[in-house]
């Protein structure tokens, strides 16, 4: 096993890791931008709830590779295809957690806000969404870790970042890049998860125990 391959390609690996992070981050952010309004709609209009959760659930059953390939006629072998495909997968987790988070806000808190003269939008933005944040953030954490792992599937359409290392290693029958790819992916997921935990801690001071 030629481990020296790793230091020889340190610069490339760093670039690839950055690219990997960027794809995952953009995909999760896009997912969040879509999921929050969808979740709010689903909670406000129970008629839509089944449809929104159902459709995002069905999209989740489509193999990621097939989804990337089917997006090819629209966006080609491009970075956009990778991001778009990954965004679709984040939806199932993010929409469900947004709905659950909003549903978990105690009714008496919502009523207290209304009783003090808050309008619907103000209640949503200043009371409901903040209180739903822990559950939504739990969804963001799961979606982030999942997306970081899924980026590699985009390797088959040439935008897998660390995933390219797997295909490269497979074609050259050489395990070192594969191992490097797996380990870096795991570390990246760990770092991202810790960062999200810290963010959540900062955003929700009221959930901290004690003084």
């Amino acid at each position: 096993m030629r481990w020296s391959w790793i230091p020889d390609h340190a610069g490339d690996l760093a670039m690839t890791t950055l690219e990997h992070s960027a794809i995952a981050a953009v995909a999760v952010l896009c997912g969040l931008v879509l999921a929050l309004p969808l979740g709010v709609l689903a909670v406000r209009f129970p008629v839509l709830k089944g449809a929104v959760l159902g459709i995002s659930g069905v999209l989740f059953t489509i193999p990621s590779l097939a989804l990337f390939i089917l997006l090819l006629p629209l966006t080609g072998l491009s970075y956009e295809t990778a991001v778009l495909g990954l965004t679709v997968y984040t939806l199932v987790v993010l929409v469900r957690n947004t709905v659950e988070g909003l549903a978990s806000v105690p009714p008496h808190v919502r009523e207290a806000a209304r009783a003090m003269g808050y309008g619907g939008t103000r209640t949503l933005l200043t009371v409901e969404l903040p209180l739903a944040l822990p559950v939504i953030m739990a969804g963001v954490r799961v979606a982030t870790v999942m997306t970081i792992s899924l980026v590699s599937v985009a390797g088959f359409i040439g935008h897998g970042a660390l995933g390219q290392l797997f295909i490269d290693g497979f074609q050259r029958d050489f395990a070192v890049p594969v191992i490097a790819g797996v380990v870096i992916t795991l570390l990246l997921a760990l770092v991202a998860d810790l960062a999200l935990v810290a963010t959540q801690h900062a955003l929700t001071p009221w959930t901290r125990r004690g003084r």
């Binding site: 870790v145 792992s149 590699s152 995933g163 797997f166 497979f170 594969v178 795991l186 997921a189």
Partner: peptide, 19 residues
């Protein structure tokens, strides 16, 4: 378990295949 979720399946398949 949440760490395990981050394991890229493609990488695992290829790694085990190479072995």
């Amino acid at each position: 378990a949440s760490f395990g979720r981050a394991l890229p399946t493609v990488g695992v398949v290829i790694l085990v295949f190479l072995v």
